[in-house]
Amino acid sequence: MAKFRGAIVVDTEHCKGCSLCVVACPTHVIELNPDVNGKGYHYAYMKNPEACIGCASCGLVCPDSVISVYKKAVE
């Protein structure tokens, strides 16, 4: 089991759905939501939140800085 659990918060209205975070995620947490935001983009969301380890790869490659990453050690 992973030693860290993570979570991301996406600013969905500013996400442009480029899916660079989807391919950057090493644990396949992120997918594009079938729903769209106000501009019609399929925004990123955590499809498998259990798998997130808080590595922040998604946030690093995000061109629009819409991803905040949280990370907590598992006790």
């Binding site: 979570a7 600013d11 991803i67 949280y70």
Partner: peptide
């Protein structure tokens, strides 16, 4: 994974990356 546990992680002290 329940929603409760996610809210445990998403706290100010656990923030590792945010918009500059």
């Amino acid at each position: 994974m329940s929603r409760m546990e996610l809210t445990d992680i998403i706290k100010e002290e656990n923030l590792v990356l945010k918009k500059s």
